[in-house]
């Protein structure tokens, strides 16, 4: 497991609302190797999003450890370079056009130089939106928006992409094409992928499959 890019051990997460406590999971181990693809399925409310947030260090666990390969610390500054996150609800910035949205990932973590612009244009082309660069998110279809989000996630050449139900808001046909794109692009660029999905067909297309149920993460395959 020396080539592992992301390792989490004994994660425990409890939500507190008022005086009630809800333990989502108490002891989850997770790791993913460089360039590997892993899917996580589970019922609604089983804690998939919670786990993904912990892996992205967007949220902190009650206990347990998280390590990003090559990063001394997990946190805001490292996140932008190390992980690319794709959400169900796209989350593009409405004031920026497609190209600028992709560039935003670099803007936050570093500098915009001609090389960055070239990479953004190349990614836009790769996700099939070459002629949509100047469209605002409101001028793009759902599938196109998620393609922009995929390109944005890849902008900084992250080691791992965390995708939380990336096709949840899309119709079946669009979802298929976005999923083809995501899996294809990750394989091409040897970027590790953690895919949270409800769809067993998509899960099957990853190298390993997990199922999250009642606080335990069980390997299916």
């Amino acid at each position: 497991m020396s080539d592992s890019v992301l390792t989490a051990r004994a994660l425990r997460k409890t939500y507190r609302s008022g005086n009630r406590r809800l333990e989502v999971f108490s002891n989850v181990d997770f790791h993913i190797a460089a360039g590997e693809s892993v899917s996580i399925r589970g019922e609604s409310g089983s804690g998939k999003s919670t786990l993904l947030n912990l892996l992205a260090a967007l949220d902190t666990a009650d206990s347990g450890t998280l390590a990003w390969d090559g990063c001394a610390k997990t946190g805001n500054a490292a996140r932008g370079r190390f992980v690319g996150i794709i959400f169900q609800a796209f989350y593009l910035i409405p004031e920026l056009n497609a190209l600028e949205n992709i560039l935003m990932a670099r803007r936050i973590t570093g500098r915009i130089d001609p090389a960055a612009r070239a990479r953004a244009a190349e990614l836009l082309d790769r996700v099939g939106l070459k002629d949509r660069g100047h469209h605002l998110p409101s001028q793009l279809s759902g599938g196109e928006r998620q393609r922009v989000a995929v390109a944005r996630a890849l902008m900084n050449s992250p080691r791992v992409i965390l995708a939380d139900e990336p096709t949840g808001n899309l119709d079946e046909k669009t979802a298929d094409s976005v999923m083809d794109l995501l899996l294809g692009i990750c394989a091409e660029t040897k970027t590790a992928l953690v895919l949270v999905t409800h769809n067993p067909l998509y899960a099957k297309r990853t190298a390993r499959e997990y199922f999250l149920h009642e606080g335990t993460l069980r390997p299916v395959r």
Binding site: N76, A77, R79, G80, I93, I108
Partner: peptide, 16 residues
């Protein structure tokens, strides 16, 4: 609000 969350996901600090 959600968008501000996104800045964080892209690596921004709350201060930024």
């Amino acid at each position: 609000t959600r968008e501000i969350g996104l800045y964080g996901a892209l690596g921004a600090t709350p201060w930024q």
